[in-house]
Design a protein around this nucleic acid. Structure first.
Length: 430
RNA sequence: GCAGUCGUCGCAUAGCCUGGUAUUGCGCCGGAUUUGAAAUCCGGUGUCCCCGUGACUCGGGAGUUCAAAUCUCUCCGACUGCGCCA
């Protein structure tokens, strides 16, 4: 959510950003109008309250001195003021909640490097790492590979849960586990603190970190407790500082979170999304940074550097893409994706997303830095990046490391986490 | 899950029974004093707005009342004991 002062003092910045995104200005103007309405009502309410408070102060004194007539006169006056106040109060609250509902739907101000574009075709290639693997045989798709090796059981998962859930079995499950350990160790060596979060959050905390539309299309709700399953550990690891002032000397706060992630994926279809590429539940190792505003752009590059070092070490061929205006969500100010080469699909596909959310989440969550207990401390910036989403990493590894017989070579850096094993063997039951 | 105790400004605390301006200490910021520091003293230190002799604020919400930190209901959270359990 954007700071309300931006609408009051620098609305042109927001308008210019909407122009770049190709969005109309009407919602901006409406926020400004509702804000003015709210402030007018608020001021009027305050004046009436003041009158009422002043009058009510006389009641005690009048009663004490036995002047019942005077007391009754004031009571009548105060009752009338009370009615007017409560009428005006509901209008005031209505204007404010309307203002903020709308304000939450207005996207973050983009960084100037973000390219203009209608949709994902407008994204620009920032860098290319590694080289396309060449095979002396016809490479199989990951769907064929998981089936012939009996590593994934979608059918039985559908029986007990529903579509897009899966059992991961045998050596592929072990590789998944190795990826988690490798990625956490990798980032711990770079001074990121390992954190395991709750996988459910309440609504108030969740509204601070995500787009409102996500409640319908992305998150699972948990009844009767009104919790939401997290879509990524970014959400709890950012929201954990809600309503806090973080001592400045502890910034930047670097964390590596690991959690199961849950996504409803409403409206997603397509042949290329078969198998375990797009699923309702997966594990993700995530990088999170809470930073001072002046440090956040350098730290955004640090997050990207961590990703490229990590994925280079896994020996995966990928492109780094600078996400364009039309493909950007509401929260990020700038976003890089890593897209791995998937031979079976003959295209590059998203495996990592690396964002600087600037103060957009922190405003809504009211996360400040400086001295706790002091007024008007500045708002922090929040950044997040995938390190490894294991289901997609497994796809990229299977597709790029496959052998002629359908088995998979284990990337060298993962072998120590696999007891020295160099090749994934099929599961012996299906 | 049951029972009890509790939740007050960054931390710690008083006020609640008996409704009427939210107390004090620590920390932090600024100033005075000092060669400098410590100590001491003075002021500041929740939110909002049109910045005032303004409004709001005592875990959240609702109610009673002219008036609620204070009384009532409800939800949330913490602690203790019992029960259950990986």
């Amino acid at each position: 959510m954007l700071d309300i002062n931006l609408f009051r003092e620098h609305a042109d910045m927001i308008r210019a950003d909407h122009d770049k995104r190709g969005l109309p200005h009407d919602r901006i103007e409406e926020v400004i109008a509702l804000d003015q309405t709210w402030r007018n009502h608020l001021h009027e309410t305050d004046q009436l309250r003041r009158e009422k408070n002043e009058a009510a102060r006389g009641i005690g004194a009048a009663k004490k001195s036995g002047n019942q007539e005077e007391a009754q006169r004031i009571l009548a006056q105060v009752a009338d003021l009370g009615q007017r106040i409560s009428d005006l109060e509901s209008m005031t609250n209505e204007a404010m909640s309307a203002r903020d509902r709308l304000r939450m739907s207005i996207p973050n101000i983009l960084h100037s490097d973000v390219p203009k574009g209608e949709d994902e075709s407008g994204n620009t290639v920032h860098a290319v790492h590694g080289t396309k693997p060449s095979f002396a045989f016809e490479p199989r798709t990951h769907n064929a590979l998981i089936e012939m090796n009996k590593w994934v059981d979608l059918k039985r998962a559908a029986k007990i849960t529903g579509s897009r859930f899966y059992f991961l079995k045998g050596d592929l499950a072990r590789l998944e586990f190795a990826l988690q350990q490798y990625a956490v160790d990798f980032l711990r060596q770079r001074e990121y603190t390992f954190v395991q979060p709750p996988v459910m959050m309440n609504r108030a905390a969740y509204e601070g970190v995500t787009d409102l539309g996500d409640f319908e299309t992305v998150m699972y709700g948990v009844e009767p407790d009104a919790y939401y399953m997290i879509a990524t550990s970014e959400h709890p690891l950012t929201a954990m500082f809600m309503d806090e002032t973080i001592p400045e000397e502890t910034l930047p706060l670097r964390m590596v979170g690991v959690s199961q992630c849950f996504r409803r994926e409403v409206g997603s279809h397509g042949q290329s999304d078969m198998g375990i590429w797009r699923v309702h539940q997966f594990t993700k190792i995530e990088q999170i940074i809470i930073a001072r505003p002046e440090d956040s752009w350098a730290l955004h590059e640090e997050l990207l550097q961590n990703c490229t070092d990590l994925w280079d070490s896994l020996g995966i061929h990928y492109e780094i893409v600078n996400i364009c205006t039309g493909d950007m969500g509401t929260v990020a100010a700038k976003k890089y994706d890593l897209e791995a080469w998937i031979p079976g699909a003959n295209q590059y596909k998203e495996i990592v997303s690396c964002s600087n959310c600037t103060d957009y989440q922190a405003n809504r969550l009211s996360i400040r830095y400086g001295q706790p207990g002091h007024p008007n401390q500045p708002i922090v910036h929040t950044l997040n990046s995938t390190a490894v989403a294991t289901s997609r990493a497994l796809v990229a590894i299977m597709e790029q490391y496959q052998l002629e017989d359908g088995r998979i070579a284990v990337p060298e850096v993962l072998q120590p986490h696999m007891g020295g094993q160099t090749v994934l063997e099929p599961c012996n039951w299906g």
